[in-house]
Amino acid sequence: MSSRRRFYARPLLATAASIVVLTGVASAAPAATQATPPATTLDDTYYQDALGKTGTALKSSLHTIISDQTKLSYSQVWDALKATDQDPANSSNVILLYTGRSQSKSENGGNTGDWNREHVWAKSHGDFGTATGPGTDIHHLRPEDVQVNSIRGNKDFDNGGSAVSGAPGNLTDGDSFEPRDAVKGDVARMILYMAVRYEGDDAFADLEPNDRVSNGSAPNIGRLSVLKQWSQEDPPDSFEKNRNEVIFDRFQHNRNPFIDHPEWVEAIW
């Protein structure tokens, strides 16, 4: 672990009087959540080498910072997601990304009605599969309904299409998928995290967003212009910030910089 994090004071658990997560299902109840550290603390420690930079210099600095991480196996991802995506109103459940459904943690697997592990950066885009590294990076892996995960498949992200059965607010067509409004920014920031974290210097492809759809097996996902718009329209909420904190504190010990500094999306792209 780098000296940067060795001197970082980890946040303490804080109890929220009421947490409401926009999941498509109303939920509000007292729950424990990670306190988000003040930006000044992160800037003075974790992000200190990136401050004041823009463009490729900022992207390069962030790559160095977030590449210092603990890597999980694909089987370990199951338990990690049960913590990172826990329903704040029901500790026995997780919140599914696209459907917004709160579902029992134990109902994970491959059968109809189960939830499984959705690669938001589709694993065929760069052909990394479930290999330890990009294939197991929980910054872009989320719980999702098996059937909805299959409908999304490896499609790029864009606006438009027809309603997705079982997932109100989501749209899809032959070459793209549009998530519900409450997680559009989450999706964008996960994609852009992957583009900064995986630069082709660790035996995996250099992952980059572009402004196309139908990218196939190329190490690209689009549309960048739409993802940037989604990031602006749907800024990080308490659920996304808490998720970033749990990943940092308990699992990978690295962060998604675009959750902590959404303005860096425009500064790089």
Rank of each mutant, 00 (worst) to 15 (best):
W78H: 04
P30R: 08
G52R: 09
T41V: 12
S61K: 06
L72D: 00
D68K: 13
K53T: 11
T45W: 08
K53N: 05
Q76L: 12
D44H: 07
P37A: 05
S27R: 05
K82C: 10
D68S: 11
A32F: 11
D49R: 08
S61R: 02
Y74N: 01
T64Y: 05
G52P: 01
T33D: 00
Q69G: 01
A26Q: 04
Y47A: 02
Q34C: 11
K82Y: 02
Q76Y: 06
A35K: 07
A28C: 05
A28F: 08
A35L: 11
D49G: 00
S27W: 03
I66Y: 09
P30Y: 05
Q69K: 15
A39T: 11
T70D: 12
L42C: 05
D43P: 00
T70H: 09
L72A: 04
T40L: 07
T54E: 09
V77S: 01
D43G: 02
H63N: 15
T40S: 12
D49N: 10
T54M: 05
T54Q: 07
W78T: 10
Q69V: 07
T45I: 09
A57R: 06
S67G: 13
D49K: 08
Q48E: 09
S75I: 14
H63P: 03
P38A: 10
A57N: 06
Y47I: 09
G52W: 10
Q69P: 00
S75G: 08
Y47L: 09
D79Q: 13
A26Y: 11
Y47W: 11
S60K: 14
I65Y: 01
Y46M: 03
L51H: 02
S27V: 08
L62C: 04
K53V: 11
S73T: 15
W78G: 01
K59N: 09
D44R: 12
K82Q: 14
A83M: 08
T33A: 12
A80N: 04
A50G: 02
Y74M: 07
D68R: 13
T36W: 10
A50W: 04
Y47N: 06
T36K: 03
V77R: 02
T40Q: 07
L42V: 04
L58V: 14
L72R: 01
T45N: 11
T33G: 12
T36H: 06
S61T: 06
A39V: 13
T33Y: 04
A57G: 01
A31S: 15
V77D: 00
Y47M: 08
D79T: 15
K71G: 00
S60I: 05
S67R: 10
T64K: 12
A35R: 10
A28S: 14
K71S: 10
S61L: 04
A35E: 04
D43E: 13
Q34W: 10
